[in-house]
Amino acid sequence: MKKGNLTVGIFALLLLLFPLVVRSSYYQHLLIIIFIWVIIGSSWNLLAGYAGQVSFGHAIFFGVGAYTAGILVTKLGVSAWWGMLLGGFIAMAVALFVGWVCFRLRGPYFALATLAGGEIFRLIAINWESLTEGMVGILIIPTFKSKLPYYYLSFGLAAACILAIHLIMRSKWGYYFVSIREDQDAAESMGINTNRYKNIALLVSAFFTGLAGAFYMNYMGFIDPDVVFSLHYISIMAILVGIVGGVATIMGPAVGAVVMVGLQETFRSSFFGLAPQWVSEGHAIVFGLLVIFVIMFMANGIVGDWNKISRLFWRRKAVRT
C-alpha cells in the first residue's frame, strides 16, 4: 500500500513537471486528451466495472456536458467556463432520466437500452437546430492560446475523479455497488435498495463524464453531434479504455487511456508520418485485434492482470541471466 502511494506520487509529480520540460504543444495536447479519457474511462468504470451496469451510452453525458458549455456561449452569451460548473449537473439531470428508463432492464438489455439512448441523443442534437445548430456544430474561441492552463486543469480534474472514485469504493457505497454487480437479487435480499444505488453510481459517473464534455468544449473550441455524441469515438472508446486498462480497478482506466489514445494517435498520424498514409485507416482493425487479444490473454485488463504480465517479463529476464 505504501509503495503504491509512492509510485502514484512520483507519477503525479512527473506529470506536473512534464509541460515545463517538454515544450512541444503536440505532446501537451496528447496528454490533455489522455486526461479527458482518464475521466471518461474512470466514470464508465465506476458504473460498469464496479456496479456492473455496462453502459454503451456514455456519449450521452459527454455530449450533454459539451453542449451545455457550448449553448451557454451561443444562446446566453456567457463564458463557456460556466459550462464546467453546469455541465456536470445537467449531465446528472439527464442521467436521472436515463436511469429511470434504462434501469428497468438488467444486464445486456440495460446495455442495449443505453446504446439506443446514445443514438437518440445524437439524433436530437442533429435535428434540434434552433438549440444546437445541428450539423453545423458550435464554434467558440478558446480563452487561452497556451496549452498550460488546459493541461493543469485537465490533470486536476482527472486526479480528482480518480480520487473521488477511490474514496467511494472504500465507503459503504462501494460495497453496495460490488454486491449489486455480483448478485442483484441477493443484494436486494440483504436490504440494499438496488435501484437507488444503481442510480447513485450512474449519477456520479454522469457528473464526471459531463464535466469532461464541458472541458472538451472549452479546450477544442468546436463540437458537433457526430463528435461528442459519437457511438464509436465516445461510447465504445469509453468501454475499450476500461477493458484494456482493467475493469473494476482504480488505475485501470488511466492505463487504458494512455494505451488507447497512444494507439489511436499512432495510427491517425500513420506512425508519426513514417508509414504510408493508408495506415491511418487501419486503427479500427487494430482496436478490434487489441480487444480480442486482451479478452483472450488478459481478461482483467493490464492493471487487473499485472501480476501475470510482470511474471512473464520476470521469467524472460531469468532465462537471459
Binding site: 460495497y175 460490488v178 454486491s179 455480483e182 448478485d183 437479487d185 441477493a186 443484494a187 435480499s189 440483504m190
Partner: peptide, 14 residues
C-alpha cells in the same frame, strides 16, 4: 447466492 468476489467476512457484513 453469495457475493463470490467478496471475502467471507465481507459477505457476512453485507
Amino acid at each position: 447466492r453469495l457475493f463470490p468476489e467478496m471475502t467471507v467476512e465481507e459477505n457476512l457484513i453485507m
